Computed example of a mutant assay.
Amino acid sequence: MNTTTSLTYQLRGVWELDRIGYGAMQLTGPGVWGDAPDRELAKRVLRTAVESGVNFIDTADSYGPHTNEVLIREALSSYYPNIVVATKGGLERTGPNQWPINGHPAHIRQAIDGSLQRLGKDEIQLWQLHRVDPNIPIEESLGPVADAVKAGKILQVGLSEVDIPTIERAEKVVPIVSVQNLYNLAERKWETVVDYTAERGIAFIPWYPLASGPDKLQKRIGALADKYEATPAQVALAWLLRRSPNILLIPGTKSLIHLQENLRAAKIPLSDDDFFSLSV
Results as ranks from 00 to 15, higher is better:
residue 263 L to H: 04
residue 80 Y to H: 03
residue 120 G to K: 07
residue 3 T to R: 13
residue 170 A to V: 04
residue 257 I to E: 15
residue 36 A to L: 12
residue 168 E to W: 02
residue 98 Q to R: 14
residue 6 S to H: 04
residue 10 Q to H: 02
residue 216 K to I: 13
residue 248 L to W: 03
residue 83 I to A: 01
residue 24 A to G: 07
residue 167 I to C: 03
residue 272 D to L: 12
residue 44 R to C: 03
residue 248 L to R: 00
residue 274 D to M: 04
residue 204 F to V: 05
residue 10 Q to P: 00
residue 222 G to Q: 08
residue 104 H to Y: 13
residue 215 D to I: 06
residue 65 P to Y: 13
residue 217 L to R: 09
residue 100 P to R: 05
residue 115 S to G: 08
residue 273 D to F: 10
residue 79 Y to T: 00
residue 238 A to N: 09
residue 233 A to F: 07
residue 121 K to V: 15
residue 41 L to S: 09
residue 262 N to E: 07
residue 183 Y to P: 00
residue 2 N to K: 09
residue 154 I to E: 00
residue 8 T to N: 10
residue 70 V to M: 11
residue 102 N to P: 09
residue 3 T to G: 08
residue 262 N to V: 05
residue 214 P to G: 11
residue 200 R to Q: 04
residue 64 G to L: 11
residue 79 Y to I: 02
residue 272 D to C: 03
residue 243 R to V: 06
residue 12 R to S: 13
residue 80 Y to T: 01
residue 22 Y to I: 06
residue 141 S to M: 11
residue 201 G to Q: 06
residue 72 I to K: 02
residue 84 V to L: 06
residue 203 A to G: 10
residue 11 L to C: 10
residue 209 P to T: 05
residue 192 T to W: 01
residue 51 E to S: 09
residue 225 A to Q: 11
residue 274 D to V: 07
residue 226 D to G: 08
residue 220 R to T: 09
residue 181 N to C: 06
residue 137 P to T: 01
residue 167 I to S: 02
residue 222 G to F: 11
residue 126 L to V: 15
residue 80 Y to Q: 06
residue 271 S to G: 14
residue 176 I to R: 00
residue 172 K to L: 06
residue 238 A to I: 03
residue 192 T to D: 09
residue 120 G to E: 10
residue 184 N to F: 10
residue 40 E to D: 12
residue 165 P to W: 05
residue 71 L to K: 01
residue 195 D to W: 01
residue 58 D to I: 11
residue 103 G to C: 06
residue 157 V to Q: 00
residue 27 L to M: 10
residue 98 Q to K: 14
residue 267 K to Q: 13
residue 184 N to L: 07
residue 223 A to T: 08
residue 147 D to Q: 15
residue 266 A to C: 04
residue 227 K to Q: 15
residue 3 T to M: 14
residue 94 T to G: 09
residue 231 T to I: 05
residue 242 R to E: 05
residue 35 D to S: 09
residue 265 A to I: 01
residue 165 P to F: 04
residue 110 Q to N: 03
residue 191 E to K: 15
residue 176 I to C: 09
residue 77 S to W: 06
residue 129 L to P: 11
residue 45 V to I: 14
residue 170 A to N: 05
residue 31 G to T: 04
residue 226 D to W: 07
residue 216 K to H: 14
residue 112 I to T: 07
residue 235 V to I: 15
residue 61 D to A: 14
residue 67 T to F: 01
residue 85 V to Q: 00
residue 39 R to A: 15
residue 50 V to K: 05
residue 152 G to H: 03
residue 228 Y to W: 12
residue 178 S to K: 11
residue 223 A to C: 04
residue 133 D to F: 03
residue 43 K to T: 01
residue 90 G to L: 01
residue 248 L to Q: 01
residue 96 P to M: 03
residue 178 S to M: 10
residue 106 A to G: 05
residue 90 G to A: 11
residue 32 V to R: 14
residue 189 K to N: 06
